[in-house]
């Protein structure tokens, strides 16, 4: 059952990725990408990584995709009026993907593959995850925090309006 669910989820994720990459409207592409990332989070859960699945939803499908949407709106505010898609069945692919993902999530909750004696034998609980992270890779966490700080400073510097350089093209 869990094996079958893995292949179904893989097919859903692949479908969402292919739909995402062939869109002309970047907003649609980002919304399909959210589906693909959520499906990947369920796959992580099936592979015994519940903590990582939570981070995938919070960080990727939440924060980074919202960042994408912010930037798309910032650089092209009239995208919706310009490229609104027509057709009666335009909700069909996204509706199918959402429904299938929700159904898979429901089946996962019912099945509870991470329970003791469940089908997934190797699993890393959040406690074990934190211990392994801060015991073995404490230095990596520190370096990573510096990388994130540099990224924040760099993004702030790039986003600042330079006087007189506005229309240098």
């Amino acid at each position: 059952m869990a094996t079958l669910l893995f292949y179904i989820l893989a097919a859903i994720v692949l479908m969402a990725v292919l739909l995402c990459l062939t869109r002309n409207n970047p907003v649609h592409a980002v919304l399909y990408l959210v589906h693909a990332l959520f499906g990947l989070a369920l796959l992580y859960f099936l592979l015994g990584a519940p903590m990582l699945a939570a981070w995938q939803v919070i960080l990727y499908a939440g924060a980074i995709m919202v960042l994408f949407l912010f930037v798309i709106m910032l650089i092209d505010p009239d995208l919706f009026e310009k490229k609104a898609s027509r057709g009666r069945f335009r909700w069909l692919p996204v509706g199918f993907l959402s429904g299938a993902l929700l159904a898979c999530g429901g089946v996962l909750i019912m099945m509870d593959p991470l329970a003791a004696g469940g089908i997934v034998r190797y699993r890393l609980s959040p406690r074990a995850f934190g211990r392994a992270l801060f015991d073995e890779y404490g230095l990596a966490v520190e370096i990573l925090s510096l990388i994130l700080l540099f990224a924040a400073v760099g993004a702030f510097h790039l986003g600042r309006r330079h006087k007189g350089k506005e229309d240098a093209s």
Binding site: A63, L67, F68, V71, I147, A151, F156, L158
Partner: peptide
């Protein structure tokens, strides 16, 4: 996350 914030900026 760091890469994408710089890239979007």
């Amino acid at each position: 996350a760091a890469e994408i914030s710089i890239a979007l900026a």
